[in-house]
Amino acid sequence: MSVLRVTHLVKRFGGLVATDDVSLTVEAGEIHALIGPNGAGKSTLINQLCGELAPDGGRVELGGRDVTRASVPARVALGLGRTFQVTSLLEEATCRENIAMAVQARAGLNFRIWDRIAGRQGIWDQADATLAGTGLVARVDVRAQDLSHGERKQLELLVALARKPRVLLLDEPMAGLGHVESAQMIAQLRDIPLPMLLVEHDMAAVFALATRISVLVYGRIIASGSVEDIRENPEVRAAYLGAEDALC
């Protein structure tokens, strides 16, 4: 059973078909990369998967359950985790507090919300456990706004993981990263034993990580297949990859 299954998804904005009969799946153990030129409708698609935007047609399933009309929190409760194109953190909070927020969100808005946080050692212990062994372990008490861009991307990923998702939607995790930081991010993503849908412009990262690639152009998936299939697909080259050197 697919962790995430999208079937015949359609989204129109007036006359523009931003998502045109898109079907794709994310299977257990795979990293499914979604590539496409700017304006191809990647963000629109992501927003429909997360529940920010309601599709006009089609179906989204999470772990076999229909979530096409479900709210954002309902999807998160079913195991959907995401990161944003523009890094999204609590800027004035420390790394540890950012993680603690995610741990606590997992506990939900239940009847114990009036509890004192300080008394709930478990939250902090879990935050520390999430940070242990990562590149941020020496930076736990640094505020998010004082981290480097690469560290911020890393923290955002850890925040998403602290929520204990079953599938991750990553919206351009390499955006703005330098060579070294990209390599670190690739290594970090590779170590995460979760199925992922990876939206990314950095072809080196896509080819290094993806087990499967789909190409979105003008709202349609024009090709889907293994890394080799996509590299050699003439239609993809014409529509998207263009020049030969984009592949390396």
């Binding site: 997360c50 709210s71 954002v72 929190p73 999807r75 998160v76 409760a77 985790g81 995401r82 944003f84 999204s88 953190l89 609590l90 800027e91 004035e92 909070a93 603690a100 927020m101 995610a102 606590q104 969100a105 997992r106 939900g108 808005l109 919300i113 946080i117 925040v159 998403a160 929520r163």
Partner: peptide, 19 residues
């Protein structure tokens, strides 16, 4: 803590599944 987080970054709090 949720209120503070919500005041700082609504999108993130939503993405973490807080209703």
């Amino acid at each position: 803590m949720l209120v503070r987080a919500g005041a700082t970054n609504r999108d993130m709090v939503r993405a973490l599944g807080v209703d």
